[in-house]
Design a protein around this nucleic acid. Structure first.
Lengths: 129, 129
DNA sequence: GTTACTGCAAAGCTTTTGCATCCCT
DNA sequence: AGGGATGCAAAAGCTTTGCAGTAAC
């Protein structure tokens, strides 16, 4: 956790609680999920603090903002490149740690300069079958 | 256009204008883009009508709702499975019509029943280079 | 004539912002 | 002590909804 202070972040108790909740979390929580979780420790916690902290972390490259849910932003503390499997029924999102070798044919690529990719897999999870 | 009536949709002038704007459109417009475009023909056009029509089309599988933009929903009249290339600078979205052979290793797949996938490619488009 | 659609306005959600206060360093 | 963070409330932006009037079938 000291590494946060090293990059110029003030380690307030609220932030520590948010960081602790996010650390190793693979549930891809929304801002509200985070707010609800941390509010138990800090009843005065506000959405502003949650959003401010998330934005601060994102700007420093310590957090990813995911577009996998059309209704709200989801956050992922795992900044390693990876993909996601989404259950169409319960909306659960599972990480897929595997590097796929996908190459776009040159005639489609034109002069686009590729920097990365993200795959969303859709299906039905074991629990929903 | 008659096919819309065949599936039980009333062909109002407003709807025809929306359908005409969407037909063959590869710009992945937002609801506001569609509203602005159609408002020129129908100054009384309301967002309610745009959203109602989009939702009606989506429910009938005639339109895709895209999650590629965290700020707003984008719509795609091309319902053929395809992927997207997104310019990180100008946010332009280009279709990628190519089927990639991607298989998730069994130990990652678990008992997830896969139904489809969508790849977002990130990079810089020729215009922005 | 029925039924579904339109358009306005209001409301609902998520996210952002202004600002006074607070507290980490 | 100083500068950034917190928390409240208000506002902003996108999307949905209620409802009365209207038009397609």
């Amino acid at each position: 956790m000291e590494r946060y202070r090293d990059i110029g972040l003030k380690l307030t108790p609220q932030r520590l609680a948010i960081l602790e909740f996010l650390d190793g979390n693979t549930s891809h929580p929304s801002a509200e999920d985070i707010y609800n979780a941390v509010k138990e420790k800090f009843p005065t916690m506000s959405f502003a603090t949650v959003y401010n902290t998330l934005e601060t972390l994102r700007k420093r490259g310590l957090l990813l903002e995911l577009n996998i849910d059309p209704e709200r932003k989801r956050y992922d503390p795992n900044i390693e490149p990876h993909h996601h499997m989404i259950c169409l029924r319960c909306k659960k999102v599972v990480d897929v740690h595997f590097e796929f070798d996908i190459k776009i044919p040159a005639e489609q690529l034109k002069d686009f300069h590729l920097l990365g990719n993200h795959i969303e897999f859709y299906g039905i999870c074991p629990d929903c079958r």
